[in-house]
Computed example of a mutant assay.
Amino acid sequence: MTDRTFLPCRIAVLTVSDTRTSGDDRSGDTLVDRLTTAGHALADRAILPDERAEIADRLRAWCADPDIDVVISTGGTGLTGRDVTVEAHRDVYEKEIDAFGTVFTMVSWKKIGTSAIQSRACAGVAKGTYLFALPGSPSACRDAWDEILVHQLDLRHGPCNFVEIMPRLDEHLRRK
């Protein structure tokens, strides 16, 4: 699909952590660096604690913002008691992108072997906005971006990609 012109997405980045600050948010920095280098725009950025309701509220607010196309969160996708990002995402999703977690596991398997089983990375769509929940390590953010998102968020990628169907994500909400 090289005959298509690149269409930049407006992406918000959310770091979920009880301990990170803007000064030491390496995973968030990794995502911002990757998305801007690829030609996308950083629409917003935030750090929130591992609190399900706060995370879900921020995701809903960003989904309601017409200037945000994509939300990528990092952190809180593990198995510990404080890891609630996946549950918050699923509170917001209208549709889950089931294969995202599977593909992320395949990418992770190549690097960390059976430890990939501990990730609960997931993705979905709500109000015409894509939402991706990634693990909290810079390495996992690089892997998800470099192996999956850089391609799926590029209109030129074939045979298909997320950007080409973006205008139709909220067609069920429009008046017929």
Rank of each mutant, 00 (worst) to 15 (best):
T2A: 14
P66T: 07
R90Q: 09
S139Q: 06
D57G: 08
A53P: 03
T30G: 01
H172V: 14
G113F: 04
H157R: 02
W145D: 14
E51C: 15
H89Q: 13
F104A: 13
T15P: 13
A61Y: 06
A56V: 11
I117P: 01
T114D: 06
G136Y: 11
S73G: 08
G113A: 11
P66Q: 02
N161C: 07
I112W: 13
G158D: 15
V71M: 09
C122Q: 10
S27I: 14
S108A: 14
L155P: 01
A38T: 00
V103C: 05
S139M: 13
A123E: 08
K176W: 12
A140G: 12
T102H: 08
F132I: 06
D98N: 11
D65P: 04
C122D: 15
H89I: 01
V92F: 13
L14T: 05
I72T: 03
V92R: 10
D146K: 06
S17V: 09
D98S: 08
D57Y: 09
A99D: 15
G28H: 14
S139Y: 06
D25S: 02
A121P: 04
D57M: 04
E87P: 09
P8C: 11
A46I: 00
C122L: 13
V70Y: 10
F104P: 10
S137Q: 00
L131E: 06
P8Q: 12
D65W: 06
D83M: 03
R60Y: 01
V103S: 06
V163Y: 09
E94Y: 14
L149Y: 10
Y130N: 12
P167C: 03
R120D: 02
R60I: 08
D67F: 08
A64L: 14
P167T: 11
R175W: 10
G124P: 00
L155Q: 04
G78C: 00
L131D: 02
